[in-house]
């Protein structure tokens, strides 16, 4: 390889990205559960906020967990 020193990465993008999506997920889920109901007439009576909130929380968890495990592996080795 061209350089012997370990390459310097910038900070891990997965953390801010995962946090942002997690915040959105929670916000949508809570609003979907306790917010007004009549707005869902628009969306064919599907509570899309709650559904999409759950999906975004899962995506966010995937980012944050993978960032967490990568960091732990790096400090172990």
């Amino acid at each position: 390889m061209e350089s012997s020193e370990p390459r310097r990465h910038f900070f891990d993008l997965k953390i801010p990205l995962g946090s942002l999506l997690g915040f959105y997920g929670l916000l949508l889920l809570v609003y979907g559960l306790v917010g007004p109901r009549d707005i869902y007439q628009k969306s064919a009576n599907l509570d899309v906020n709650a559904i999409w909130g759950v999906i975004m929380i899962l995506i966010s968890a995937a980012f944050l967990l993978s960032a967490f495990f990568e960091r732990r592996n790096r400090s172990n080795s």
Binding site: Y24, L27, L28, Y31, G32, G35, I39, Y40, K42, S43, A44, V48, N49, W52
Partner: peptide, 11 residues
């Protein structure tokens, strides 16, 4: 405008 309720609309 036709299909997205507030919340998901902001997204």
């Amino acid at each position: 405008a036709r299909y997205l309720p507030n919340g998901i609309l902001g997204l």
